[in-house]
């Protein structure tokens, strides 16, 4: 009685089993249609996974936090979720699913972009999109400031970092970020 059930369970969670296939398709869909920031990703995963009981909301909150404090793409949250649902194979499948569309899109867009840059109408369009993109990044900056600047310590770190970066253009920003982490840690001890 137990044996077939255990077998079935093992089968469902195997590499090409239904659990992984549904993980793959969910993340493929998100990777292919999601615009914008991590906040949108949260809302998306909330309705896609938490609402269907695939993961708990706490797991989602922790996954997003991990994506944000690890280096590299924020979408690595998805690796974390895949692992919680179905171990290493779930993590691998989910990661492939979420990033695959990006590779395809850029491969398609790149030759197109070169051709269209010589088209006057498209150039007008792209120039405006570029300005809009810069505006979006500025707003991200404002939101970061609103969330993190509180008290003289954080202001000091932001101002000193900015002075260094604007004065010495060759400074690697990774040093600034690590420096910020260390100085912040020390200032918290004071």
């Amino acid at each position: 009685m137990f044996l077939p059930l255990a077998f079935l369970n093992g089968d469902a969670k195997s590499f090409f089993g239904p659990v992984n296939i549904s993980l793959f398709l969910s993340f493929l869909k998100i990777g292919a249609i999601l615009y914008g920031s991590g906040y949108v990703l949260f809302a998306f995963l909330d309705s896609e996974l938490v609402a269907h009981g695939v993961i708990s909301r706490q797991q989602l909150i922790d996954a997003i936090a991990i994506g944000q404090f690890t280096p590299g793409p924020v979408f690595s949250s998805v690796t974390f979720i895949g692992f919680q649902v179905n171990g290493i194979s779930g993590a691998v499948i989910s990661t492939i699913g979420i990033f695959l569309p990006s590779f395809v899109f850029v491969a398609l867009l790149s030759p197109l972009l070169k051709k269209m840059r010589s088209n006057k109408l498209f150039t007008t369009f792209l120039n405006a999109v570029n300005v809009a993109s810069i505006a979006l990044i500025l707003v991200v900056c404002y939101q970061l400031g609103r969330d993190s600047i509180s008290g003289w310590q954080t202001i000091l770190i932001a101002v000193c970092s900015a002075i260094i970066l604007f004065r010495f253009k060759q400074v690697n920003s990774a040093f600034i970020i690590v420096g910020g982490a260390v100085v912040g840690y020390l200032l918290l001890l004071v």
């Binding site: 900056c141 970061l144 993190s148 770190i157 604007f166 910020g180 982490a181 918290l188």
Partner: peptide
């Protein structure tokens, strides 16, 4: 650790 990273990131983005 994240405490001091965020203000530094703002400067990096602005620059």
């Amino acid at each position: 650790f994240v405490y001091g990273i965020k203000p530094a990131i703002i400067a990096v983005i602005l620059a």
